[in-house]
Computed example of a mutant assay.
Amino acid sequence: MRHISASSIDRLLKHERKKLEIKGRKGTKPGTLLKQQIAIRTWAEWDENCPGFMEIDLVAHEGGNSRGDFAQTLNMVDVWSGWTELVAIKNKASKWVREAIEKSKEDF
């Protein structure tokens, strides 16, 4: 009969366990190209006393695994009224985001 200590088993399986770890979630990353192309208003420039100033974000539904395509929810909130529009989209490709925003504008 052969014997091995728990610490030796842990040491031998270290690399295999590392492969099974869930990697950190990767969401939207800021990029300098987008910063130059999109006009971003600060809170000081918002008029919160009238409708039309929106906060928009994507919520990922990847279930802990950010690899591949998975559903996203485009979440749009009017700052003044609190009105919320939620639109499910296929992934975060600009095509789907743009279509969801356009559809929401038509629904208003």
Rank of each mutant, 00 (worst) to 15 (best):
E102C: 01
N65R: 14
W83M: 09
S104C: 07
K95N: 06
V77Q: 09
A71W: 03
R98C: 03
K95T: 11
H61N: 07
I56R: 00
L74N: 03
M54D: 01
E48F: 15
K90R: 04
T73P: 01
A100Q: 07
N65M: 07
W83V: 09
D57G: 01
S81M: 11
V77R: 10
M54L: 13
D107L: 04
P51K: 11
H61R: 06
G64P: 12
K92C: 03
L58F: 00
A71I: 12
S66G: 09
E102A: 07
E85T: 12
K95G: 02
R98V: 08
S81K: 11
D78K: 04
N49S: 15
K103A: 11
D107G: 00
V97W: 03
M76N: 04
A60M: 07
E62M: 11
M54A: 03
V97R: 01
V97D: 03
A88Y: 02
E48P: 09
P51D: 07
K95E: 13
V79I: 15
F108N: 06
E85M: 08
N91H: 11
T84M: 06
H61L: 11
S104I: 04
R67C: 05
L74Q: 02
V97C: 07
A100Y: 06
K90H: 01
V97N: 05
C50K: 15
D78L: 03
L86S: 03
K105Q: 09
I56L: 05
R67P: 00
E106W: 03
S66Y: 14
I89C: 04
K105F: 12
D69F: 11
N91R: 07
E99W: 05
I89A: 03
P51R: 14
E102I: 06
M76Q: 06
A100R: 07
L74G: 00
E99K: 13
L58G: 02
Q72H: 09
F70Q: 15
E55W: 04
R98F: 05
V87Y: 01
S104N: 06
V87D: 04
D57R: 00
K103R: 14
N65Q: 12
K90N: 00
D69W: 08
V87I: 06
K103V: 05
N65K: 13
N91I: 05
E102Y: 02
D69N: 14
